[in-house]
Protein backbone atom coordinates (compact mmCIF):
# COMPACT_ATOMS: atom_id res chain seq x y z
CA UNK A 1 0.00 0.00 0.00
CA UNK A 2 1.91 3.05 -1.23
CA UNK A 3 1.21 6.67 -0.51
CA UNK A 4 0.74 7.32 -4.23
CA UNK A 5 -1.94 4.64 -4.45
CA UNK A 6 -3.76 6.16 -1.49
CA UNK A 7 -3.48 9.65 -2.98
CA UNK A 8 -4.85 8.35 -6.31
CA UNK A 9 -7.93 6.97 -4.55
CA UNK A 10 -8.48 10.33 -2.84
CA UNK A 11 -8.01 12.08 -6.18
CA UNK A 12 -10.65 9.82 -7.77
CA UNK A 13 -13.35 11.42 -5.62
CA UNK A 14 -11.90 14.93 -5.95
CA UNK A 15 -11.68 14.67 -9.74
CA UNK A 16 -15.20 13.31 -10.01
CA UNK A 17 -16.57 16.05 -7.77
CA UNK A 18 -14.73 18.64 -9.88
CA UNK A 19 -16.21 17.29 -13.13
CA UNK A 20 -19.71 17.14 -11.66
CA UNK A 21 -19.46 20.72 -10.44
CA UNK A 22 -18.06 21.98 -13.73
CA UNK A 23 -20.76 20.25 -15.75
CA UNK A 24 -23.71 20.99 -13.52
CA UNK A 25 -25.21 24.43 -13.94
CA UNK A 26 -27.02 24.06 -10.61
CA UNK A 27 -23.69 23.68 -8.84
CA UNK A 28 -22.71 27.15 -10.02
CA UNK A 29 -26.17 28.39 -9.15
CA UNK A 30 -26.01 27.11 -5.57
CA UNK A 31 -22.52 28.59 -5.22
CA UNK A 32 -23.52 32.08 -6.30
CA UNK A 33 -27.26 32.57 -6.08
CA UNK A 34 -28.08 31.49 -2.53
CA UNK A 35 -25.01 33.09 -0.94
CA UNK A 36 -25.81 36.38 -2.68
CA UNK A 37 -29.45 36.22 -1.64
CA UNK A 38 -28.39 35.42 1.92
CA UNK A 39 -25.84 38.21 2.11
CA UNK A 40 -27.95 40.92 0.53
CA UNK A 41 -31.14 40.12 2.42
CA UNK A 42 -29.30 40.29 5.74
CA UNK A 43 -27.14 43.26 4.70
CA UNK A 44 -30.14 45.28 3.57
CA UNK A 45 -31.96 44.42 6.79
CA UNK A 46 -29.07 45.95 8.75
CA UNK A 47 -29.51 49.14 6.65
CA UNK A 48 -33.24 49.23 7.35
CA UNK A 49 -32.61 48.80 11.06
CA UNK A 50 -29.91 51.51 10.83
CA UNK A 51 -27.35 49.37 12.62
CA UNK A 52 -23.85 50.65 13.36
CA UNK A 53 -20.71 49.48 11.50
CA UNK A 54 -19.55 46.87 14.04
CA UNK A 55 -23.01 45.38 14.40
CA UNK A 56 -23.36 45.16 10.62
CA UNK A 57 -20.08 43.24 10.52
CA UNK A 58 -21.38 40.97 13.30
CA UNK A 59 -24.44 40.06 11.24
CA UNK A 60 -22.53 39.74 7.95
CA UNK A 61 -20.04 37.37 9.58
CA UNK A 62 -23.00 35.11 10.31
CA UNK A 63 -24.15 35.24 6.66
CA UNK A 64 -20.62 34.50 5.39
CA UNK A 65 -20.25 31.60 7.84
CA UNK A 66 -23.61 30.06 7.00
CA UNK A 67 -23.12 30.06 3.24
CA UNK A 68 -19.49 28.92 3.35
CA UNK A 69 -20.31 26.03 5.66
CA UNK A 70 -23.32 24.97 3.61
CA UNK A 71 -21.53 24.97 0.27
CA UNK A 72 -18.47 23.09 1.57
CA UNK A 73 -20.71 20.66 3.43
CA UNK A 74 -22.69 19.89 0.28
CA UNK A 75 -19.56 18.74 -1.52
CA UNK A 76 -18.60 16.33 1.25
CA UNK A 77 -22.14 14.94 1.21
CA UNK A 78 -22.16 14.69 -2.58
CA UNK A 79 -19.23 12.24 -2.46
CA UNK A 80 -21.64 9.41 -1.77
CA UNK A 81 -24.91 11.10 -2.72
CA UNK A 82 -23.92 11.11 -6.41
CA UNK A 83 -23.67 7.32 -6.15
CA UNK A 84 -26.87 7.06 -4.13
CA UNK A 85 -28.77 9.10 -6.72
CA UNK A 86 -27.16 7.16 -9.59
CA UNK A 87 -27.73 3.86 -7.73
CA UNK A 88 -24.11 2.93 -8.26
CA UNK A 89 -23.08 2.84 -4.61
CA UNK A 90 -22.07 -0.82 -4.62
CA UNK A 91 -19.49 -0.26 -7.35
CA UNK A 92 -17.61 2.15 -5.11
CA UNK A 93 -17.71 -0.08 -2.06
CA UNK A 94 -16.65 -3.23 -3.88
CA UNK A 95 -13.39 -1.41 -4.66
CA UNK A 96 -10.50 -1.44 -2.16
CA UNK A 97 -11.21 1.99 -0.70
CA UNK A 98 -11.76 3.38 2.78
CA UNK A 99 -14.10 6.12 3.87
CA UNK A 100 -11.11 8.37 4.45
CA UNK A 101 -10.50 8.40 0.67
CA UNK A 102 -14.10 9.47 0.09
CA UNK A 103 -14.04 12.19 2.73
CA UNK A 104 -10.65 13.63 1.81
CA UNK A 105 -11.39 13.61 -1.92
CA UNK A 106 -14.77 15.25 -1.51
CA UNK A 107 -13.37 17.55 1.17
CA UNK A 108 -10.84 18.88 -1.33
CA UNK A 109 -13.65 19.96 -3.67
CA UNK A 110 -15.56 21.38 -0.69
CA UNK A 111 -12.48 23.33 0.37
CA UNK A 112 -12.13 24.95 -3.05
CA UNK A 113 -15.84 25.72 -3.49
CA UNK A 114 -16.14 26.91 0.10
CA UNK A 115 -13.13 29.18 -0.37
CA UNK A 116 -14.61 30.69 -3.54
CA UNK A 117 -17.89 31.44 -1.74
CA UNK A 118 -15.99 32.80 1.30
CA UNK A 119 -13.94 35.18 -0.86
CA UNK A 120 -16.91 36.33 -2.96
CA UNK A 121 -19.05 37.01 0.11
CA UNK A 122 -16.32 38.92 1.89
CA UNK A 123 -15.62 40.96 -1.23
CA UNK A 124 -19.32 41.82 -1.54
CA UNK A 125 -19.49 42.63 2.17
CA UNK A 126 -16.70 45.16 1.72
CA UNK A 127 -18.14 46.58 -1.50
CA UNK A 128 -21.82 46.76 -0.57
CA UNK A 129 -21.79 47.14 3.21
CA UNK A 130 -18.41 48.70 4.02
CA UNK A 131 -17.23 45.79 6.13
CA UNK A 132 -13.66 46.35 7.32
CA UNK A 133 -11.60 43.18 7.07
CA UNK A 134 -8.31 44.82 8.09
CA UNK A 135 -9.22 44.32 11.73
CA UNK A 136 -9.07 40.55 11.33
CA UNK A 137 -6.04 40.46 9.02
CA UNK A 138 -5.00 37.63 6.71
CA UNK A 139 -4.28 35.23 9.53
CA UNK A 140 -7.64 35.91 11.16
CA UNK A 141 -9.40 35.30 7.84
CA UNK A 142 -7.46 32.10 7.14
CA UNK A 143 -8.15 30.69 10.60
CA UNK A 144 -11.83 31.61 10.33
CA UNK A 145 -12.13 29.87 6.95
CA UNK A 146 -10.31 26.80 8.25
CA UNK A 147 -12.72 26.64 11.17
CA UNK A 148 -15.75 26.95 8.88
CA UNK A 149 -14.34 24.23 6.62
CA UNK A 150 -13.89 21.85 9.55
CA UNK A 151 -17.48 22.45 10.62
CA UNK A 152 -18.60 21.71 7.04
CA UNK A 153 -16.68 18.43 6.99
CA UNK A 154 -18.23 17.38 10.31
CA UNK A 155 -21.72 18.12 9.02
CA UNK A 156 -21.00 16.37 5.73
CA UNK A 157 -19.81 13.26 7.53
CA UNK A 158 -22.97 13.33 9.64
CA UNK A 159 -25.14 13.52 6.49
CA UNK A 160 -23.26 10.59 4.96
CA UNK A 161 -23.59 8.52 8.12
CA UNK A 162 -27.34 9.07 8.29
CA UNK A 163 -27.77 8.26 4.60
CA UNK A 164 -25.83 5.00 5.05
CA UNK A 165 -27.91 4.17 8.10
CA UNK A 166 -31.37 5.15 6.92
CA UNK A 167 -31.14 5.61 3.15
CA UNK A 168 -32.42 8.49 0.99
CA UNK A 169 -34.99 9.71 3.49
CA UNK A 170 -32.26 10.78 5.88
CA UNK A 171 -30.94 13.48 3.52
CA UNK A 172 -33.55 16.06 4.51
CA UNK A 173 -33.21 15.34 8.23
CA UNK A 174 -29.46 15.61 7.98
CA UNK A 175 -29.62 18.97 6.26
CA UNK A 176 -32.17 20.17 8.80
CA UNK A 177 -29.65 19.37 11.52
CA UNK A 178 -27.14 21.68 9.88
CA UNK A 179 -29.66 24.57 10.15
CA UNK A 180 -30.23 23.72 13.79
CA UNK A 181 -26.49 23.91 14.39
CA UNK A 182 -26.40 27.38 12.77
CA UNK A 183 -29.31 28.50 14.94
CA UNK A 184 -27.61 27.33 18.13
CA UNK A 185 -24.18 28.68 17.18
CA UNK A 186 -25.40 32.30 17.25
CA UNK A 187 -25.66 32.96 13.56
CA UNK A 188 -26.91 36.59 13.69
CA UNK A 189 -26.86 37.16 17.48
CA UNK A 190 -24.66 36.47 20.50
CA UNK A 191 -25.23 33.05 22.05
CA UNK A 192 -25.89 34.79 25.37
CA UNK A 193 -29.35 35.62 23.97
CA UNK A 194 -30.24 31.93 23.85
CA UNK A 195 -32.07 30.30 26.78
CA UNK A 196 -29.58 29.14 29.43
CA UNK A 197 -29.89 25.44 28.62
CA UNK A 198 -29.26 26.12 24.92
CA UNK A 199 -26.26 28.30 25.75
CA UNK A 200 -24.61 25.20 27.17
CA UNK A 201 -25.34 23.39 23.92
CA UNK A 202 -23.89 26.32 21.95
CA UNK A 203 -20.64 25.94 23.85
CA UNK A 204 -20.08 22.46 22.45
CA UNK A 205 -20.56 23.60 18.85
CA UNK A 206 -17.21 24.55 17.25
CA UNK A 207 -18.87 27.10 14.94
CA UNK A 208 -19.90 29.16 17.99
CA UNK A 209 -16.25 29.62 18.92
CA UNK A 210 -14.98 30.28 15.39
CA UNK A 211 -17.59 33.00 14.87
CA UNK A 212 -16.99 34.50 18.32
CA UNK A 213 -13.25 34.62 17.66
CA UNK A 214 -13.74 36.41 14.35
CA UNK A 215 -16.32 38.76 15.83
CA UNK A 216 -13.93 39.61 18.65
CA UNK A 217 -11.84 41.55 16.08
CA UNK A 218 -14.82 43.92 15.89
CA UNK A 219 -14.98 44.37 19.65
CA UNK A 220 -17.62 41.83 20.60
CA UNK A 221 -17.13 39.94 23.88
CA UNK A 222 -16.42 36.21 24.08
CA UNK A 223 -18.79 33.87 25.87
CA UNK A 224 -15.85 31.58 26.72
CA UNK A 225 -12.09 31.99 26.84
CA UNK A 226 -9.64 30.67 24.21
CA UNK A 227 -12.25 30.31 21.44
CA UNK A 228 -9.82 29.04 18.81
CA UNK A 229 -8.43 26.29 21.04
CA UNK A 230 -11.98 25.28 21.98
CA UNK A 231 -13.17 25.41 18.37
CA UNK A 232 -10.32 23.31 16.98
CA UNK A 233 -10.31 20.82 19.86
CA UNK A 234 -14.07 20.34 19.55
CA UNK A 235 -13.71 19.99 15.77
CA UNK A 236 -11.04 17.31 16.13
CA UNK A 237 -13.17 15.47 18.66
CA UNK A 238 -16.23 15.62 16.37
CA UNK A 239 -14.18 14.57 13.35
CA UNK A 240 -12.90 11.52 15.24
CA UNK A 241 -16.42 10.74 16.48
CA UNK A 242 -17.84 11.38 13.01
CA UNK A 243 -15.34 9.02 11.42
CA UNK A 244 -16.23 6.40 14.00
CA UNK A 245 -19.92 6.93 13.31
CA UNK A 246 -19.60 6.70 9.54
CA UNK A 247 -17.41 3.58 9.82
CA UNK A 248 -20.07 2.03 12.02
CA UNK A 249 -22.79 3.16 9.62
CA UNK A 250 -21.00 1.50 6.71
CA UNK A 251 -20.65 -1.70 8.70
CA UNK A 252 -24.36 -1.59 9.56
CA UNK A 253 -25.15 -0.92 5.88
CA UNK A 254 -23.16 -4.05 5.01
CA UNK A 255 -25.01 -6.03 7.67
CA UNK A 256 -28.50 -4.83 6.80
CA UNK A 257 -28.12 -4.72 3.02
CA UNK A 258 -28.54 -0.93 2.80
CA UNK A 259 -25.69 -0.73 0.27
CA UNK A 260 -27.66 -3.03 -2.01
CA UNK A 261 -30.97 -1.24 -1.42
CA UNK A 262 -29.31 2.06 -2.27
CA UNK A 263 -28.03 0.50 -5.51
CA UNK A 264 -31.41 -0.78 -6.74
Amino acid sequence: MSLVTEAVKVWAFAARGGIMNRRNVFAVFEMLFWPLVGLFSVGLLTRFLELGGATVSFVLIGAVAMNTVQIAQLDVSYALLYDVWAKSLKHGFIAPIHLVHVILGAGLVGFIRGLVVFVIMLALSIWAFDMDLRQAGWTGLAVFFLGLFLVAVIEGVLVLSLVLLFGHRAEITAWAISYLVLLLAGLYYPVTLLPTSLQAVAQVIPLTHFMEHFRSFYGFPLSASAPLARGFLLSLAYLAAGYGLITLSLRRARQRGTLLKLSE
Partner: peptide, 8 residues
Amino acid sequence: RFYGRLYG
Protein backbone atom coordinates in the same frame (compact mmCIF):
# COMPACT_ATOMS: atom_id res chain seq x y z
CA ARG B 1 -10.95 6.58 -15.03
CA PHE B 2 -12.89 7.04 -11.79
CA TYR B 3 -13.19 3.31 -11.13
CA GLY B 4 -9.62 2.66 -12.28
CA ARG B 5 -8.36 5.18 -9.72
CA LEU B 6 -10.31 3.42 -6.97
CA TYR B 7 -8.03 0.44 -7.65
CA GLY B 8 -4.95 2.66 -7.42
